[in-house]
Structures are given as structure tokens and as C-alpha cells.
């Protein structure tokens, strides 16, 4: 379970998050919606441990542990996964090797045995097929020469194989056509279960047509200004974010 209490954060002198309270219980999918500049990506980066943000107040716990005190790799081992809005290219690093290294690093940290290449590749190939990715996706260098849609699918591929407890999906829908959106949503829905939760960060409602959230939160000017059920996403789609910032 993720519990965010009064989280404030700044970049330099500029406050981006102005006191966020948000709880995501196990097994639930929550959407965070909001206009550009509301602090959505900052929230996902802070939760995953990226440098460059100063937490100026509040606390975040994950399964009772102080998340903000953990190194990024420790957060991954604890079960947090960030699907990047702009996945990073790693020239010279093969995709299969990269994911297997990650899977085994996480397994080691959790005290599990490492996966051998054969077992890993079998599982990876199945996941590649389920995401309708080209066969050579595992052989290519990480995200190098991938289309926008392939990069996003590659994030979901990593999520599928890393089996996180909490996935942070940062604008995973941006740049996806409707078919790709459906496939990506399918990957998330396949992970759904009592031990899996997700924070789906998005500007638009359309991803939520395929991933039905348990709760929807509206983030504006660094604060959660409204929370509700899935119907809130529909309402936002119809009326926009106008006026919410001051609410």
C-alpha cells in the first residue's frame, strides 16, 4: 500500500507539489489526471527516486517503509515500477540482457534465485507476443530506433517481467494509436490482481476507457483538488480542467 501524506516538493526555488495526500491500497488502480504543469510527472519521479527534486515536506510510505529514504534500486526491489513518459535509449545494451539483468537484480534483492537465460527468454518471448511486439524487440538495443509506440510497449514489457506491486504509469498513453493503446492497457489489465496496484498518470481520459480505475484524482497546481470514482474521468473529459485549480 502506498500512502502519501502532505507531500511537498520543489525544483530549485519553485514549488511543484504543494501538499499531496493520496493512498493507493493493494489491488487498486488509481488515476491521477490533471492539466500540463500540475505536477503529475514530478510526483512519479519523486516516487521512483529521481534526482533533482527537493522534498520540502510530508512523507511517503510503501508497505510501511519510508519510501523517500530508499535508493531507486531499493524501491524497484520493494516492488515499485515507473513506466517512463519518455523511455531512455541505451545504445550498446541489448534489450533482453537489460531486462534479464533487472529481473535478476530485483530477484536477488528479494532473496529469490536468479533466472537462467533459457527460462527468462521463454517468459520474455511470451510477453513480447502478448504485447504484439515484433520478434526482434528483445535483440535490439534498449529503445534505440524504437517508434514512440514501441518504446511504450517496451515499458509495459519490463513491467510484465519485473512483476511490480505498484506500477506508476506516467503518460503511458501519449503518442499511442488506438490499437497500441488497447495492447498496452491489456498488459496492465493482465497484471491486475489483489497484489498489484497502479497509479495511472494521464492527461486524457481515453486510456481509462481501457483501464478502469477504482479511483480518479485530479491534480492541479501541485494539489489533489478532487477525488472520485471512474465517472470523474468522464466528467473531466466533458468539461475540461477549467476552474478546478482553484477548487
Amino acid at each position: 500500500m502506498l500512502e502519501i501524506k502532505g507531500l511537498r516538493a520543489a525544483v530549485g526555488d519553485k514549488e511543484i507539489l504543494a501538499g499531496i495526500d493520496l493512498t493507493v491500497p493493494d489491488g487498486e488502480i488509481h488515476a491521477v489526471m490533471g492539466p500540463n504543469g500540475a505536477g503529475k510527472s514530478t510526483l512519479s519521479y519523486i516516487l521512483s527516486g529521481r534526482d533533482g527534486y527537493e522534498v520540502t515536506g510530508g512523507a511517503v510510505s510503501f508497505d510501511g517503509e519510508d519510501l523517500l529514504a530508499m535508493a531507486p534500486e531499493a524501491r524497484a526491489a520493494a516492488g515499485i515500477f515507473l513506466a517512463f513518459q519518455y523511455p531512455i535509449e541505451l545504445p550498446g545494451v541489448g534489450n533482453a540482457n537489460f531486462i534479464r539483468t533487472a529481473v535478476n537484480a530485483v530477484r536477488r534483492a528479494r532473496g529469490e534465485t536468479e533466472m537462467d537465460t533459457v527460462a527468462f527468454l521463454k517468459e520474455a518471448r511470451n510477453a513480447v507476443k502478448a504485447l504484439a511486439m515484433p520478434d526482434d524487440m528483445l535483440k535490439r538495443n534498449v529503445n534505440v530506433g524504437f517508434s514512440g509506440g514501441e518504446k511504450k510497449r517496451n515499458e509495459i514489457l519490463q513491467m510484465t517481467l519485473l512483476k511490480p506491486k505498484l506500477a506508476l504509469l506516467d503518460e503511458t498513453d501519449s503518442g499511442l494509436d488506438i490499437d497500441a493503446l488497447r495492447i498496452v492497457a491489456g498488459g496492465v489489465n493482465a497484471a491486475r490482481g489483489p497484489k498489484f496496484s497502479a497509479l495511472v498518470i494521464t492527461h486524457y481520459q481515453r486510456l481509462l476507457d481501457y483501464i478502469t480505475p477504482d479511483r480518479v484524482h485530479v491534480l492541479a497546481a501541485g494539489r489533489i483538488v478532487r477525488s472520485g470514482g471512474p465517472e470523474l474521468a468522464v466528467e473531466l473529459e466533458q468539461h475540461g480542467y477549467g476552474g478546478l485549480g482553484a477548487a
Binding site: 521512483s48 527516486g49 529521481r50 534526482d51 535508493a71 531507486p72 534500486e73 524501491r75 524497484a76 526491489a77 515500477f81 515507473l82 517512463f84 523511455p87 531512455i88 541505451l90 537489460f98 531486462i99 539483468t101 533487472a102 529481473v103 537484480a105 530485483v106 534483492a109 519490463q158 519485473l162
Partner: peptide, 13 residues
């Protein structure tokens, strides 16, 4: 950015 990407996947620094 590349280092963070790897670390966010559980790989040590």
C-alpha cells in the same frame, strides 16, 4: 538519465 533508468529497474548504481 541512463543511470537512473537502470536504477529504477532495480540495478545498483
Amino acid at each position: 538519465e541512463q543511470i537512473f533508468y537502470l536504477r529504477s529497474r532495480g540495478v545498483s548504481e
